Amino acid sequence: MTSQAALIVGAGSGLSAALARALSKRGYKVVLAARNPDKLEQLVEETGALAVACDASDAKSVEALFEKIDQLDETLAVVVYNPSARAQGEFHTLDPDLVKNAIMVTAYGAFLVAQEAVKRMLITGTGMLLFTGASAGVKGFPRSAPFAMGKFALRGLCQSLARELHPKNIHIAHVVIDGGIDGTPQKGRFNEVDGEDNLLDPQQIAETYMHLMDQHRSTWSWEIELRPWVEKF
């Protein structure tokens, strides 16, 4: 059986690291793409992953990333898209350039990565694309229009891809992360309560991604929501 590769775009600490460990344990050759791959040195040593510099919002950079993957002995089987960007503030004060960047990273980058991945998966006749969404892709919050714009676009992309590609044996899944992830800088944005499990455990999120990968195609999910037990929705 041909060995397989798994690509994680927007790799870093927290969820990406948990996913890298889980995929490595399953025998995948993990490829970690990040703007600054130097920060991944410890994770690379731990998982045997390949770290590649990539700006997901730049078409040439994404093309170069996939060209490097093509040089591997492994077949690309799994792609995870994690990047997002924010531009917060009262709507009339938002910087248009920061808004553009938020949409380019969160949505346009997902399109670029998905397109390159799908080109290859259509040839092999199988594959899995996982996209990390947020509650902002389901409901827009005040002072956060750019993030909502990007995440709504990401969700729409995933829904469209699922309808087009599921019948071609390529599984698309959009994971709505509704709450703060433990161990990441963003966790401070969320109210913390006394007790346990008030933030999403990145290892448990990774386990859910693995479950999505294990689904039989007669019961594929295209979207799933994850939130702590104390999170209001």
Rank of each mutant, 00 (worst) to 15 (best):
L32C: 08
D95Q: 01
A6S: 04
L43Y: 02
L157V: 14
D70V: 02
A85Y: 04
L199E: 07
A85T: 00
A102Q: 02
E164P: 14
A107H: 06
L40S: 02
S13I: 09
G179C: 13
Q88H: 14
V138H: 09
V78K: 01
G180I: 07
L130K: 00
A107E: 06
Q4I: 01
F233W: 14
A17D: 00
I172V: 12
L157I: 15
L112H: 06
T208G: 03
M213I: 12
Q4C: 08
E90R: 09
E41H: 06
M121A: 02
I205Q: 01
Y28H: 11
V118L: 07
R227K: 15
M213D: 04
N198I: 11
V62L: 02
D214R: 04
S61D: 13
V80R: 00
A5L: 10
H171N: 10
T75F: 06
K187F: 11
L65E: 03
V175T: 12
N191Q: 14
L122A: 09
S57W: 05
E45N: 12
A18G: 08
M1L: 14
S144C: 14
M149A: 15
L7D: 01
N198M: 06
A153W: 04
L161M: 15
H174M: 08
G89Q: 05
S135H: 13
S218D: 15
Q159N: 14
G137A: 09
P146H: 12
A6H: 00
A206G: 01
A22I: 00
G179A: 11
G188I: 11
A136V: 09
F141I: 04
A85L: 06
I177Y: 02
H211Q: 13
L50E: 13
D38F: 04
M210E: 08
R155F: 01
F152V: 11
E90W: 07
A56Q: 10
Y209G: 06
Q71F: 11
A34N: 06
P146M: 14
A148D: 01
E63Y: 09
R155T: 03
A85R: 02
I181M: 12
I170D: 04
D194K: 09
L212D: 01
T106L: 05
V80F: 05
D178E: 05
V52K: 06
T126P: 00
S84H: 08
V78I: 14
D97C: 07
T75A: 14
K151R: 08
L122N: 09
